[in-house]
Design a protein around this nucleic acid. Structure first.
Lengths: 211, 211, 211, 211
DNA sequence: TCCTAACCGAGACGGTACGTCGCGTCTTAGG
DNA sequence: CCTAAGACGCGACGTACCGTCTCGGTTAGGA
């Protein structure tokens, strides 16, 4: 939770002097951002507006978040972070990938944060520090279970050992992010099923092709 | 809106009185944007900066481009537009897709416009008119030849008639855009080959699965 | 009028390009300051308030006046500068000094700018550039006619040649500024008459003392 | 308000429970202000800066001084308060006034507090409560001995009974404050002698004029 | 020896204003 | 009719201080 914050609170030896940080303020600010971000472009959200809606002062916001993007990142994590479950072994690659993708696409459908993610991606491409933060908290946790699923499939013998796992993960996530960001078509359940089927077929086929 | 496609004659039969538009100014502005956009986020480029670098006045810019994003869009087209070749029939799905993807990925590797595309995507998700423009000039021309390739494969009997072509196109492009935008890994030739192989396998496999 | 302005518009050879400065804006800003300054301390006047009341933007204000004090100085000059008449020779020191002092004290009584002058003095003591500006436009024009009056009195033989004119001028103005700034007592006509009488007696007496 | 005169016991019969006020803190704060005020305008001194330099907390400052101006007033008194001697009767008006003025002008020359006094005057003109405090501690103690000197001169028969004593006091102090605040010229010993001579001449002359 | 009151520092808080920057528009003179 | 120059109203920026408010901790007298 606190890991996005600047000094990363290391070592609690000294007894913490001064007035402690207001948890109420912190929550109010994150909530304000989450709400404002829903119907607006990130660039259309002013820190003044966040401060006013949160009943906080701008100084307080800047004290704890060094940029609007980090603030939004934190707000999104605050909204979502319960939803990164460790994937259980369902016994098949198809089942494992479904268990990863379906809850995520459902979540995406619920809250229209597509444009927010796009904004964060922009920032990540320009600011390396932010990029690291973004990947650590957003991309990494998504890719890991997918990677595990492919690895388990290799262990099981479902797919060949020489499967390019990283490419496979991109093959899986790419199409969803593509629609999410380009909005040329919706991320429906039907689409999810199609992509899952394709991906499983793709990595399995090379098996057959080889064999 | 029309200004994005500069030479498109809009029923211009009469010879237009007054001083004609300065082609020199137009080129200077587009060049200035192309250069500025390389090492900066789109939001970090000010119209004042563009005007100054181009030796133009802001009024001139606003006369011909209604927004910064449309200007950038135009500048990118000005840089790239020779490179949207009509795809020739190579005789196989694999060859057709390769002919679409490989030149494009090579081009992406040359010029680091990933963050610019991300910026345009952000804008497209908030501004429907811009979204239309963006898709017309950037997404559409890419998808069409891919779509044709799959259609031809169906005609040839390489893949089944019930292939979900739109999903297939997303399966193809998604992974590339994913890496381009998230920058978690580079879009290498090796990656391109892997994805192409996977995609072909995916759509072919369902054939076999059905058959 | 323009001399307070930063570049002091030197040489009108080139034909003045770009949109000219808005005289309307300038007047509105000066008027707004003059009004606001009446019932408030200078430190209680925000540039935002001036901008809003003038219907101008802060940027416009800062473009032409580099500090609040210079702005106030200009506003006060705008209000007063008609009132620095060249003193005529009345034939006696007493009459000459009266002609200098009485209109001025009347003006001071009309508009309560005492606290404003105090603010300007503060600034003048800290900022040498401002001090120069302040003395040029406020102190100098007041002292000069008084100095002349004493000089004429010397020529006439009313007072001795070895009169310390600068000290005499301070003897004249000091008491008025003292009451104006310390507000321990009002600057009444009666007070003005008393001081004038004292000053004339003071410089005349040394004559007699010598003779 | 009472805190400005720190040691003044306000009916403190009972011995006061709890931790007593830290004299060390008090001195540190006053010293910090005295130092900071030397090279800066009063408005350029922040309470945060005072607190930091004194090693005190802002809360402590605000507990004992209700405003920055009162704090500065106290700091100045702390620096100067030995220097308000009761004037002795020297036998002549000239001597009495000299005994009042000369030590004071010497003190003014030592420490450049002119701009501080100006700041206090500004505040006094806007805040009546502060004005009272200022006059009680700064203006009053200066005027009283001068007033006495003129009264004694009347008793002695040096000057007429109908001398306007208040105006005379202003005639005496005005020129010094004038130079101190406007800084158009220095307050030298020579200047002090000139003004003293002028003042004595002024009030004496009316005597002769009448007689 | 503990209790309680008043003090102390550190430092976070809600605010207000700052002076600057970028926006998109406008008003000039000139090609 | 177009162009460069540049001033304009507007709104947001990130910072600096304001005066207030918790905190943990210290220093005294009274129980």
């Amino acid at each position: 939770m606190l890991s996005v914050m600047p000094p990363v609170k290391t070592a609690r030896t000294e007894p913490r002097r001064g007035r402690p940080r207001s948890e109420q303020s912190r929550q109010a600010i994150l909530r304000a951002v989450s709400e404002l971000v829903l119907d607006r472009d990130l660039s259309e959200i002013s820190m003044d507006a966040v401060a006013e809606r949160a009943g906080a002062s701008k100084a307080t916001i800047y004290r704890w978040w060094t940029s609007k993007e980090l603030l939004v990142l934190d707000a999104l994590r605050n909204e979502w972070d319960t939803a990164v479950p460790e994937v259980t072994d369902t016994g098949s690659l198809s089942g494992d990938l479904r268990a990863v993708i379906v809850p995520w696409t459902r979540e995406l459908a619920t809250k229209p944060y597509g444009h927010v993610i796009a904004s964060l991606i922009v920032r990540a491409q320009v600011d390396p520090l932010f990029a690291r933060e973004y990947r650590t908290h957003f991309v990494g946790p998504r890719r890991k279970p997918a990677r595990s699923a492919f690895r388990r499939a290799i262990e099981r013998g479902e797919i060949t050992r020489d499967t390019d796992v990283e490419a496979a993960v991109d093959l899986l996530y790419g199409p969803f992010y593509h629609r999410l960001l380009h909005t040329h078509a919706a991320v429906t359940d039907r689409f999810a099923r199609a992509i899952l089927e394709y991906v499983v077929a793709a990595v399995s086929a090379s098996d057959r092709a080889v064999g």
